[in-house]
Design a protein around this nucleic acid. Sequence first.
DNA 1: CTGAAAGCGCTAACAA
DNA 2: TTGTTAGCGCTTTCAG
Lengths: 329, 329
Amino acid sequence: MKKIKLADIAKVANVSSITVSRALSTPEKVKPETCEKIQKIAKEMGYIPNFMAKGLKSRSQTIGVIVPTIINPFFASAVKSIIRSANKTGYNCLFFSSDESQEMEQNAVNTLMSYNIDGIIIAVISEDEHYTPDYFATLKKLSIPVVLLDRHIEAPHVCGVYLDNVDSGYKLGKEVISKQYQRVLIASGSANSKVANSRLAGLKMAAEEANSNVQIDVIKADFNTELAKELVEQYLAELKPDAIIGLNNQITLGALEASVQHNYRLGTDIHFYSIDEIKTATHFGIAIPCIRHDVEEFGYHAVTQLIRAIETEDCDKLSDIIIRGTVIK
Amino acid sequence: MKKIKLADIAKVANVSSITVSRALSTPEKVKPETCEKIQKIAKEMGYIPNFMAKGLKSRSQTIGVIVPTIINPFFASAVKSIIRSANKTGYNCLFFSSDESQEMEQNAVNTLMSYNIDGIIIAVISEDEHYTPDYFATLKKLSIPVVLLDRHIEAPHVCGVYLDNVDSGYKLGKEVISKQYQRVLIASGSANSKVANSRLAGLKMAAEEANSNVQIDVIKADFNTELAKELVEQYLAELKPDAIIGLNNQITLGALEASVQHNYRLGTDIHFYSIDEIKTATHFGIAIPCIRHDVEEFGYHAVTQLIRAIETEDCDKLSDIIIRGTVIK
DNA sequence: CTGAAAGCGCTAACAA
DNA sequence: TTGTTAGCGCTTTCAG
């Protein structure tokens, strides 16, 4: 069977298809009785609008979302909250994962453009400030607004929604310092990552402020479990810290595993701290004080800002939004 | 700036737009030199095809994917692998999460129909065999093929890709039995869940076959961490098993947490077994032997079957595909 | 091998 | 308040 279309409803209701269109999309432009009648018929006939046809003429009411990986719970939750917020506002989401690959990221953007999306929310694959792929220029040319998520880069975009990384580092730093450890290892991200560097700066700030004489060691790894595990293992072969601070969830997981390899009892021999929550830790009975970010808030702001950009033509620049984390002990 | 369209390229290449269309979509129908020239120009001008316009006339080359939640790593991986497989075959994916809500599931299906998708892969929200929402009838009427993922229900669909649950239970059962425990607790899913019941049946089969005199207790929870945790806690207040078998990843996590609450040392006082891998366990140094399913395979078959259904008109029924798990010690 | 015309389903612009 | 016309960008059909 073919899909019911506006014209089919029009025939039954004895009106023209444009009236049906209006009754369903902009009911205030149609006489109430007619409107009701049409809506009733549409429902009975099981009408399903055709976004393809709609999007050809006007806005698609669809936004694109791209994240590096959906396996990381942080991004999974962010996506979830973005989709929820968008739906509430009457927008649909097309979701893509770039799998940490530049090529797939480019593909995802191309595909989104093919679907005539009205705007894009993207967490780019690279932590490097100077990562500026071509598609940003294309999107700008086509006036498709882009909201950056979590990772800031120097590329044309209307605004970004970020975490307050310095603050996160600082808060967690205060918490750790208060414990009076002798030696603390910080497992950081890449040296080029602004996110990692900001968190590190916050931590150091807290340490200096406290004027404590704790010995702080820093490892520069990557926001990636494997590398962190390796480097922490190497470190543990030489030294034994009282605590390890992982600068994101992936790193913390790597540090945990490395410590297990060295037969340390987690939370006893070595205490763990993390920026980003490690939800599974509770299942294993390990307490990992952390900085938790309200991911719901994250998604909400990203969507809100993007839609503002879409619906007000001339906004070249909206405010960035910075989400603060809270300490969870 | 407006998007480049076929006509723009046509003007530059001195041909008609239909020739451009052919050069890009069906190059074999165009003289090689012309074809090359057109493709070159298209690239230079930064042409981006418009799926909306394309999908209006012909197939959209897009499939829809719906899973109950993306937070569960099992589904997250499945989605990832589905997207990968689809892209390889030249299809795009629109992804939705139903958040375990019937209403959102219905919405997702409606939205997908609005996007003129060619087919749907869905893991329905309910474990109940008799869950048969209306949209299945609609999809059938419109001849939009549906492939069921993981959860089987009695509704019109072309086929399903499932796990071999009895086999998983059986294999894990053999493994557990071999350990000669005195008392084993099985934390199962809902009494209405075919998946849970099959796994349970497999376990019991292994036990009976071994003719061992292990005491087996069964708790019927839900494929959900919270409830499992509560019920296992209640159980532990009375009895202390040597091992607990969680019938899916969520349940196992709940059981772990419950045991932690009772101050048992994981993997020592109580041994854990799981159907579905608990990837994070290694990070915490707990060994959880499990049944691992090749999720990549899962996605591959779902996509392949769906595309077969899409591309061959008259396939009323394709074979179901059953994926076997392997024991990981 | 290439092109002209028609139309997919919907809505913006103009008319009644 | 409702309808007519035209066109969004592409492809199918039929002709050259």
